[in-house]
Nucleic acid binder design. Structure first.
Length: 465
RNA sequence: GGAGAGGUGUCCGAGCGGUUGAAGGAGCUAGUCUCGAAAACUAGUAGUGGGUUUAUCCUACUCGCGAGUUCGAAUCUCGCCCUCUCCGCCA
């Protein structure tokens, strides 16, 4: 969430942020409620202070009077009784005022809070303005030796490509029918070498992060409380995207939600903590099963491994000090990691600077990495798919938005508490990444050459089929 | 599922009706000592909200959360949430 003080002082920064992200949040309404709230608090505080003052003053007096009362004659007793009653009555009007303020706060705070939670992190100043993914800007592209983006797959390789759907069927790598039988649309079963390839990719990525990038691998919950979803910024905006386990209706304490990314578990780890400066930066990675309802995507990418309800992902997060330059340096390092991995897998890809309209609530800067998928896209004049880029990774800078929500802070060198900056990035997501792996490494006969870096994780198998 | 114990500051841990916003220790910061470091010693060190002459102070709230008892609650009562231990069941 955003800093309310910052909002009061520079409301335009947030109005512009909402506009540039093409969202609708009533900033003026929030400011108005916020002002009303502060006015009530001021009033209540004044009353409370007065109450405390009177309490300090009349407390001892009441005590003295009560002591006197014991040894007093009946006439004095009557006088003392009324005097005590008078003293005790003094704070009553104030008590009523305090309670009234409480009631008024309770009346406005739900709206205040929910509006506040909806205000997005403004995009970084250098993020290009745009309406949606069509306005994203390509930063660079890379292809392995022998691959020319200007040519079709057939021109590059000398034969027409098969789609990953054909390839997995041909080699028995995925069983879609039985996946659908058991769990419904957008479900699948990884089988045989398909499962081994899937596991190889994940294990390769985890080892890469641990051994070559110095990240600490973690196993985190994928079933979490609502606070984790809110804290990481996925709720309330993305609520319909998450599977909801309604344990409370069965008499259990609280509901649970299935996470759509390992980021939730990794970032939630240190929620409500105050870290020592030297504990930063936190560099964590995890492999976790990710669950997505894909609400609103009905009819989109219905076939194959592209858009599915359950997949596995190696995710990396960095929590660093509140320093923009440091955050940008980590962002660049994350991109470098992804490029190293994609290059080692022999995949062609491009980096896109996402425009303001393509950013989510929580990020201020995002780079998408799209891998070339020869089997996607329209059918060309030669009867083969023309190929298309498909998003396989994305790397985000969140500023302090997420740590503010998670209440994750550290003490800086002056002893001041600060919300840390957070970043996150896909290291690899499978089975989606199997699409370009299978399609780019297919041979004329339909066999698929396993990228060399994966072979140690597949019992040395060099070729499928 | 049955029985019990407990949730206190950055962390550990005392307090169980009133000068306790909170002992003691660790950590951290500064200083002394040292060629330097370690050790030792000395001092400082809670959070949140609000106000403000905005860098300094004032103020309110906070000992899991919420309500209650009381002149007064971290301390007593009730409800809720969470954690741990033992037994049962089980991957």
């Amino acid at each position: 969430m955003i800093d309310l003080k910052e909002l009061r002082e520079h409301p335009d920064r947030f109005r512009n942020g909402v506009r540039d992200k093409c969202m609708t949040v009533d900033i003026d309404r929030l400011l108005a409620i916020d002002e009303a709230r502060r006015a009530i608090i001021t009033r209540q505080e004044t009353a409370r202070a007065e109450q405390n003052r009177i309490g300090k003053e009349s407390g001892p007096m009441i005590g003295q009077l009560k002591a006197k009362f014991k040894s007093a004659n009946p006439l004095e007793k009557e006088r003392i009784t009324s005097e005590i009653a008078g003293l005790e009555a003094r704070p009553i009007a104030l008590k009523a005022e305090v309670q009234e303020c409480d009631a008024r706060l309770a009346a406005i705070e739900p709206e205040w809070k929910s509006l506040w939670m909806l205000v997005p992190q403004p995009p970084a100043a250098d993020v290009p303005k745009g309406k949606g993914s069509e306005d994203n800007i390509e930063l660079r592209r890379w292809a392995p030796a022998g691959w020319n983006f200007a040519q079709t797959f057939a021109q590059n390789r000398g034969f027409a490509p098969r789609t990953h759907l054909e390839l997995v069927k041909m080699h028995g790598l995925v069983d879609f029918e039985r996946g659908v039988k058991m769990a419904g649309t957008r479900h699948y079963v990884m089988t045989g070498l398909g499962m081994r390839l899937h596991q190889a990719v994940l294990r390769y990525a985890i080892d890469f992060m641990a051994d070559r990038r110095g990240f600490t691998p973690m196993g985190v919950p994928v079933l979490v409380k609502e606070e984790c979803m809110i804290g990481t910024g996925f709720f309330p905006a993305g609520r319909e995207q998450a599977y909801h386990i309604e344990e409370s209706v069965r008499g259990s304490a609280h509901d649970l939600f299935l996470t759509g990314t390992g980021e939730v578990g990794l970032m939630g780890l240190h929620a409500d903590e105050i870290l020592d400066l030297h504990a930063l930066p936190l560099k964590y990675c995890t492999v976790s099963t990710c669950f997505r309802r894909e609400a609103g995507a009905a009819g989109k990418d219905t076939a194959g491994l592209y858009r599915i309800h359950q997949f596995d992902k190696v995710e990396q997060i960095v929590v660093c000090r509140a320093d923009e330059a440091e955050s940008r340096a980590w962002h660049a390092q994350m991109m470098e990691t992804v490029e190293m991995i994609l290059q080692s897998l022999g995949l062609a890809y491009r980096l896109l600077q996402c425009c303001t309209g393509d950013l989510g609530v929580k990020n201020e800067d995002m780079i998408d990495i799209e891998s070339w998928m020869p089997g996607r896209g329209a059918i060309g004049s030669d009867g083969a798919p023309t190929g298309e880029f498909g998003e396989t990774h994305s790397a985000s800078r969140l500023g302090d938005f997420q740590c503010r929500r998670l209440n994750l802070r550290y003490r800086d060198e002056t002893g001041k508490l600060r919300f840390a900056y957070a970043l996150n990035n896909t290291v690899i997501a499978s089975p989606r990444v199997l699409i370009p792996i299978l399609e780019m490494h297919q041979q004329a006969d339909g066999s698929v050459v396993v990228p060399e870096v994966l072979r140690p994780f597949m019992g040395g198998i060099a070729k499928i089929g």
